[in-house]
Design a binder for these strands. Structure first.
Lengths: 344, 344
DNA sequence: CGTTTTTGCGAAAACGTTTTCGTTTTGTAA
DNA sequence: TTACAAAACGAAAACGTTTTCGCAAAAACG
């Protein structure tokens, strides 16, 4: 009942373990006849190399780790899917961990992955991550690392991102050109770069189009939930009931806001236009359907793995590792929550 | 730059590797003084045991594998989250693979996991899985296995499920008691047990309440997508324009149907009541909100891991493994897509 | 002080593979 | 035949840990 080992095959065939190993890996110094013999018996005995031994000997596990803030999340699960798909093609398995947006957990997860000696690590940082010692631990341990989506510019490694500022600029400009005169912004927490960049895109779009930037129209949310969308929609109506457009940091919040506006009998997009961010599937099926920025999660996952794979290979060949930052294009998806043409 | 090993510590302290190893694991035959010394130097040198060597020696990897049909899916990602959370508590890492509902892929994934020698495997079967040789391979390889949600009754292992038949019965009964007279059913493919059980629950509810079961009211879908929801809603209206209730196999399809009914100006729930299945988050935010059956994904993940963990432990202690099937309770969530009281 | 028990430590095997390097065998040419 | 090159194979070390078992020194006992 014990699993077959090289030794078993060797004893059966009356050759050495060395020869069996070499035969299976097509070394040139094994005769065709023995190769055939070895391969045949390996086949019939259903020999599977002991991964533990191979790992130890080659000091690689053909496994990578990924840390994301949240698994139950359309964007992140799409990225995850992209990573898995690409990793599988190259014979890599993927260990998944989630940080729950917690800095402390993120640290622990990284420790875990490093102690498991994964061949590489992919991370989308938690919102609460402001120090990067634990990230640098990865780099110092000589483990290839790629950051995606929520990155830290200051960390020296490959990254794959979207241009949040540009996308937000496009979204806000869309509101402006479709006739909105007073545009609010629901933004994320102060820390992560994404929130900052999206906010800046919003602000620049206003200024570039000769509109005044009014800080009181910018609302800072915390957990970016559906409930917060509802709550801040209410608040906005109380503070500024003449707002006719909102650019919202993420679709989930936008959907909360839409829900509240619907309840209050406010006409979207005629009273208020709304643009979200991310293009969750949900956004295409609510009513009205949500204009948003498509964020290519699946592709981001694929690209992130490709970068990581390149680094893993470079490390193995002891060629110098080159860092690269890939910026993926986003797209404005115009739906029913915003007006398509200039209204007067 | 090489990672610290036991040998390094041993040489520094002038003791043997054996003693170092024992000291770190608190063996009783090491003096308190040496233990302290060893632990201190291990600490300062930031010693991390080489996982590959430990794996080989102990022949366990503290890693489990999970195969689900689809990662970007509210229910499955919830299960995944539950598994990860529970696994982490016990010091296990999780390798994630997805079958894309393909039998062939499922086979390959299992092969992969077995050759990586994971300590246990969790699977929710693909819809297209009808033979179970590959599943039995797992059992024969003596790897603990737990099936969840989409299971095969014929496979001898632990399982965690919901009572699909009962839940469907409850859902359909709700439609009946709220006054629906002609109730259709959008069901899933013929194969998976879930589809069958939900269909049977629907049928039994009808019969038990003195209604006639009309096979032409049962529609068999394939990929259970939003688009199919739209498409079959159209079809239903053509075939039976006097239907006043539908029990739909899954929320996503229900949302597609709702979208189509909304477009056609059909009043939900007054013209047609709809009950879905799964309680995706989305269902609580569309309009009208969807009455559905809550399927406890997160909890299912937790329970599934707990069962697996028990088996892993039993295997290690060479006590006989006991199989168990846990049935998780579901709940009818009444929202706006169905009438709450009997209408006349 | 001699004997037994306890305490502390280490040598060595084992896990299964990969790879280097040396050795044997075969084949070829003189 | 000898000499030499090429082809085929194997011994052994290495990866780093865990654990069994034996042995010495120290402590306890009479």
């Amino acid at each position: 009942m014990k699993p077959i080992t090289l030794k078993d095959i060797a004893e059966i065939l009356g050759v050495s373990v060395t020869t069996v190993s070499k035969a299976l890996k097509d070394y040139p110094d094994v005769s065709k006849k023995t190769k055939r013999l070895v391969k045949e018996t390996a086949q019939t005995l259903n020999y599977k190399p002991n991964a533990f031994a191979v790992n130890l000997r080659t000091s690689e596990s053909k496994t990578i780790g990924i840390i994301i803030p949240e698994v139950v999340h359309h964007f992140f699960s799409s990225v995850l899917k992209g990573i898995i798909a690409q990793a599988e093609k190259k014979g890599y398995l993927v260990i998944i961990l989630q940080s729950n947006e917690s800095f402390e957990l993120e640290k622990k997860q990284i420790d875990l992955l490093l102690s498991k000696r994964v061949d590489g690590i992919l991370i989308s940082l938690a919102n609460s991550t402001i120090h990067f010692d634990h990230i640098n631990d990865i780099i110092n341990s000589d483990t290839p690392l790629v950051l995606f989506d929520k990155i830290a510019k200051v960390v020296q490694c490959s990254k794959v991102i979207i241009n949040d500022r540009k996308a937000a600029y496009t979204a806000t400009t869309h509101l402006i050109t479709s006739g909105c005169k007073k545009i609010a912004h629901f933004r994320g927490p102060l820390l992560p770069q994404n929130s900052i960049d999206r906010f800046l895109g919003y602000k620049n779009a206003l200024l570039d189009h000769g509109m005044t930037y009014d800080p009181s129209l910018v609302y800072i949310l915390n957990d970016m939930s559906f409930e917060e969308g509802v709550q801040f929609a209410k608040k906005l109506l109380k503070d500024h009931n003449d707002v006719d457009g909102i650019f919202i940091n993420t679709d989930l919040v936008a959907i909360g806001a839409i829900s509240e506006f619907n309840n209050q009998g406010i006409d979207i997009p005629n009273d208020i236009s709304i643009v979200g961010f991310s293009n969750w599937f949900m956004s295409s099926v609510i009513s009205p359907t949500l204009t948003t920025i498509d964020q290519p999660g699946y592709k981001m996952g694929k690209v992130a793995f490709k970068l990581l794979y390149k680094e893993i290979k470079q490390k193995k060949q002891k060629t110098p590792v080159t860092f690269k930052t890939v910026e993926l294009p986003t797209e404005l998806i115009i739906r029913d929550s915003s007006k398509t043409t200039k209204a007067s």
